[in-house]
Amino acid sequence: MNNFSKDIAVIGEQAIVKVFSAIGYDCFYDTEPDAVIARCQALETAGYKIILILEKTAAQISRYLDSRASLAYPIILPIPDTTTHSNYGMQRLNQNMEKAMGIKIGGNL
């Protein structure tokens, strides 16, 4: 891959995330948590603004994601994958709601 857009990157299994290259995202095929963290740090240094990570991997590096929560950029966004339905993105959304409201609200606000 030569022409990196330096805007949006996707990290995950090659068989799943490869398709994002067709819509202008830069794809990186790391799946191990340590490798994903190292890749995220490298992408942050390189100036990427949005990093999409498959939910399965994002759930394994939640501590790292929490450490980046106070920074405006890069925006690390968990996206669903085809094999597992961990619902990690929704869980994080509910966690945010609990943090802000002080109580856990199960349904819609």
Partner: peptide, 26 residues
């Protein structure tokens, strides 16, 4: 996926804002 691009970017924007707001509210 092409149709979803704008929505993904909007989601990234809003989700980060919500996360930062939640921390600040706390």
């Amino acid at each position: 996926l092409q149709q979803l691009t704008t929505i993904i970017i909007e989601l990234a924007n809003i989700e980060k804002t919500c996360s930062m707001l939640a921390d600040e509210i706390q």
